[in-house]
Design a binder for these strands. Sequence first.
DNA 1: AAGTATATTGAATAATTACTCGGATTTTCT
DNA 2: AGAAAATCCGAGTAATTATTCAATATACTT
Lengths: 208, 208
Amino acid sequence: MTSSTPRQGARKPVRSAKQKRAKATVEVIIEAATRILSDQGWDALNTNTIARRAGVSVGSLYEYFPNKQAILDVILDRHLSKGDALIAQGAKDVQAGATTAQDVVDLLVSGFVRLHSDDPKLHRALSADVPLSKAQHRRVEAVRERIIDLTAAALADKVSAPAMKATLLVDTADALTHKWLIDDVGTPVSAETLAQELKTMLGLYALA
Amino acid sequence: MTSSTPRQGARKPVRSAKQKRAKATVEVIIEAATRILSDQGWDALNTNTIARRAGVSVGSLYEYFPNKQAILDVILDRHLSKGDALIAQGAKDVQAGATTAQDVVDLLVSGFVRLHSDDPKLHRALSADVPLSKAQHRRVEAVRERIIDLTAAALADKVSAPAMKATLLVDTADALTHKWLIDDVGTPVSAETLAQELKTMLGLYALA
DNA sequence: AAGTATATTGAATAATTACTCGGATTTTCT
DNA sequence: AGAAAATCCGAGTAATTATTCAATATACTT
């Protein structure tokens, strides 16, 4: 399992799907690629397979995407957008009903559980299989920082050293829920129990 | 960026390096592959490049390795062995001088910091770039479980629910030190400060 | 030194796969 | 309907790269 062949040449003037038929084609391509990625993983993802599974020809694929990477960009973009929506919702929840630091922690952990419960197979492929570009890493990193900042703000009037605490809280909540829900490490106890325990641990720390 | 081509055919009776000249060849191949991996990443790693960098021919490479994957297996194996050694040392340290749960936590975090400080570029390539096989994942998972068990044992007479606590402690210590030392997420504070904070957080939890 | 086992070589092979292009088909417009 | 624009097709091209093999060279043994 390894690397392929990005043949970057003189760009073809990629069409931009004006008719609805074309929009449907674009959509079906993205869906096929997403399905392949989550069902069979990165190694099984190639342009010919995507086209076949989408029921279109490779030619059509290259009519709307300059290269294979561009398809992946869209998939990642949509995935991260879903994450963004969850974050926005979380921020709202915090503002609405988080009176204590423990409340903030609980919402944070619950948020990450939700984030990692949605389409876990795709999530897994995206985070473990697919080699992300520098720009894509930056995008992911930006999301992380946004969550940290929001958390720090929520904690600002409740605890000491909110910025540092927010970093640990977010990184821990993310890493552990990811590990338990996405990677299948064999945990002897359920994910719910672990999430509860995680809230306890982080709550203790937040209040310290 | 992607996947290559594992051409698995009828095994050739891979030679097993009887003369010292041959042993040196095997060694130089492994070293070249390791260097390429940590300097240029998984995408740059191919058998022709490995051979050139090692100063031998591809033919020689295939004399001692049935396929490309086998080279990677050796690299991962050696890397994990170093980890095993660190764990053994850590277990000894705990037995020698850990009287409180906080002592155990401190040693655990310090151990992970050490683990992730050694050859971080290789570590990074191995954990982020290289697609591991099922068997390799199992091997990594086994190391994790061993650390958890050792930690649980060390905590057994010191805290309540040592098994569950050990899981959280180990997964957290691993994930966060990895994130800070291996991935280069832009942290505003130093890795040492973060490690200290991590010890605080985990100590609070262990004692709870 | 001759003979045999072990090592090394690298050009050639073959499989994979990103991407192109000339032409066919369908939709839109007048 | 007829023309033009948009879309679609898929066999073919080219680049990459894992792997083989027949020939050559070096090291051991007697």
